[in-house]
């Protein structure tokens, strides 16, 4: 096992008997995400939100097909990494539209769908086999596990709230949607959400370059 450190990085404090460059992403990692997508799709079925259910379940199917395909199959196009100078102006224009258009309208859909397609075009390409060489230093691994536990705890709470609402068991149950809806009903709240959401998208689209 190689002991080299990622270029340009200092060593960690403390002492570890393991490879300081860290282990690779476990093979089951992507499969857990596939499971998450399937669960979310099932919850959307319970909510009778057919579009959302179809979206998540289709994504799970695509992910599964990509995972079982041999690494040498398919194209190995490099990812398109757009500069902030390109992404931010596009996000700014989209933010104006998303802030001003009426929620739940056809015009809003007409803006959101192309944004999703752009994200898919930018996010899909890449050599799947190369991810097996990404190293995880121990400290980063611990952070990843901590974040995973917190997100799972939040997700389980959200799931419980959604089920309680849909099954009519607890009138006080409040999924995240119920908490944010009052703010989103106002133009300012809608604008803040649009900006935060688009900035998050820009951030995510610029991630994923193997160190």
């Amino acid at each position: 096992m190689s002991g080299e450190h990622p270029a340009g990085r200092g060593g960690e404090r403390g002492h570890s008997s393991r490879d300081p460059a860290g282990d690779v992403l476990p093979a089951w990692g992507p499969w857990t995400w596939l499971l998450v997508m399937a669960i979310i799709g099932a919850v959307q079925l319970v909510r009778q939100q057919w579009f959302a259910a179809g979206l998540f379940l289709l994504a799970a199917v695509v992910m599964a097909a990509d995972l079982v395909r041999r690494p040498e199959e398919g194209s190995h196009r490099s990812r398109i990494h757009l500069r902030l100078g390109v992404l931010l102006p596009v996000a700014a224009v989209a933010a104006v539209a998303l802030a001003l258009l009426p929620r739940h309208s056809g015009a809003m859909v007409a803006v959101l769908v192309p944004l999703g397609m752009v994200a898919l075009v930018l996010g899909w390409p890449g050599d799947r086999a190369a991810t097996r060489q990404v190293r995880w230093p121990p400290a980063l691994r611990r952070l990843a596990w901590a974040w995973a536990a917190i997100w799972i705890a939040g997700g389980l709470w959200e799931l419980a709230q959604v089920l309680l609402v849909n099954l009519g068991q607890d009138p006080a149950a409040a999924p995240l949607s119920d908490l944010l809806e009052p703010a989103l009903e106002h133009r300012a709240g809608q604008a803040v959400f649009a900006v935060v959401w688009l900035l998050a998208g820009v951030y995510l689209l610029r991630r994923g370059r193997a160190p």
């Binding site: 992507p30 998303l98 890449g126 990404v134 952070l143 649009a194």
Partner: peptide, 29 residues
């Protein structure tokens, strides 16, 4: 953390789908 996690195309697709759906859910759906 995100750079390493999102080197996986499978995970990247999942995260982007979740991100996009949040926008859809609160703005359109």
């Amino acid at each position: 953390l995100f750079d390493r996690v999102l080197t996986s195309r499978t995970i990247r697709l999942a995260v982007l789908v979740c991100w996009w759906w949040l926008g859809w859910h609160f703005l359109a759906g």
